[in-house]
C-alpha cells in the first residue's frame, strides 16, 4: 500500500489539522444531505405509489429504515473509534467515538418513535416486547449509557476512555439487532432489501429509500464534524491553535 495513506491519516489525527479539515468538509456534507434528502422525500412522498396493502402509511419507511440503518452503522463506527481510542490512545478517536454517541442516540430514538407510529396502525399496538424492538431499545440505552458515563467524569479524557470501554462491550448488540428478525419469531418483518440476491421491494420505492440512506450518511458526517470541532476546542482550550481561533473570531 502506498505509504502516503498512513502518513495522511497520521497528519489528520492532529487536532488543528482535523479541525480545519472538518470545517471545510462540513458545509459540503450538509448541503449534499439536504439535496439528497429533499430528492428522496419527493420520491418517497410524491412519486412512489401507495402500497397495495398498507396504503400511504408505509411512507414512514423512507425515514424509519434509513434511521434504523444509521443507528447500527453509527454504533459500529463508534465501536471502531472506541477500540482505536483504547488501544492507541489517539485523542481524535476518543472525540469521534464520543461525538458519535448523541447522533446515534438521535437516530435510534427516531427509529423507535417512527416504528411505534407505524406499528400502531399495522400491528394494532404502539409497542411490543418483540426481539427487534427490544434489541433496538437496548441500543438506545447503550448510547445513553455511553453519553452518561462520558459526562460523569471530571477529566474528559478519562471519561472518554471509560465510556469507550462500554461502547466496545455493547457492540455485541449490533448483530443481535440486525439478525433478530431471523433468529427469533418476531412481529417485525424481515429485510426486504438484500445486498445478495433480489430485493423484495418495488424499484419506485427502493430508490427513495437508498437516496435517503446516503442523505442520512452525509448528515452523520456533517453532524459528527460539528460535534468533533466543538469537542476539540474544549479539550485543547489551553493550546495556541485554539487561542488563535478565539482571537480570530474577535477581530471578525
Amino acid at each position: 500500500m502506498a505509504n502516503w495513506i498512513p502518513l495522511w491519516l497520521h497528519k489528520l489525527s492532529s487536532p488543528p489539522v482535523f479541525y480545519r479539515f472538518a470545517g471545510t468538509l462540513r458545509p459540503w456534507a450538509i448541503a449534499l444531505a439536504l439535496v439528497l434528502g429533499l430528492v428522496a422525500l419527493y420520491g418517497g412522498l410524491v412519486l412512489a405509489p401507495p402500497d397495495y396493502q398498507q396504503g400511504d402509511d408505509y411512507r414512514i419507511i423512507f425515514i424509519h429504515v434509513p434511521c434504523a440503518w444509521m443507528s447500527l452503522f453509527i454504533y459500529a463506527l463508534m465501536g471502531i473509534a472506541a477500540f482505536i481510542a483504547l488501544v492507541w490512545r489517539i485523542k481524535l478517536a476518543e472525540v469521534v467515538a464520543m461525538a458519535s454517541a448523541p447522533i446515534g442516540a438521535a437516530f435510534t430514538f427516531i427509529t423507535l418513535v417512527t416504528g411505534s407510529l407505524w406499528g400502531e396502525r399495522m400491528w394494532g399496538t404502539w409497542w411490543t416486547w418483540d426481539a427487534r424492538l427490544t434489541s433496538e431499545l437496548v441500543l438506545l440505552f447503550l448510547y445513553l449509557g455511553v453519553i452518561a458515563l462520558y459526562h460523569s467524569f471530571e477529566d474528559r479524557r478519562q471519561g472518554a476512555r471509560t465510556a469507550a470501554f462500554l461502547a466496545l462491550i455493547g457492540i455485541v448488540n449490533v448483530p443481535i439487532v440486525h439478525f433478530s428478525v431471523n433468529w427469533w419469531n418476531t412481529l417485525h418483518q424481515g429485510s426486504t432489501i438484500r445486498l445478495l440476491g433480489p430485493s423484495t421491494i418495488a424499484p419506485s420505492m427502493i430508490w427513495p429509500l437508498l437516496t435517503m440512506m446516503i442523505a442520512t450518511k452525509c448528515y452523520y458526517v456533517a453532524s459528527l464534524f460539528g460535534r468533533a470541532r466543538a469537542d476539540l476546542l474544549a479539550l485543547e482550550s489551553g493550546k495556541d491553535w485554539v487561542r488563535q481561533i478565539a482571537e480570530g473570531e474577535v477581530r471578525r
Partner: peptide, 8 residues
C-alpha cells in the same frame, strides 16, 4: 395521506 396523516 390516504387517511394516515395522523401517523405519517
Amino acid at each position: 395521506m390516504g387517511g394516515y396523516a395522523a401517523y405519517v
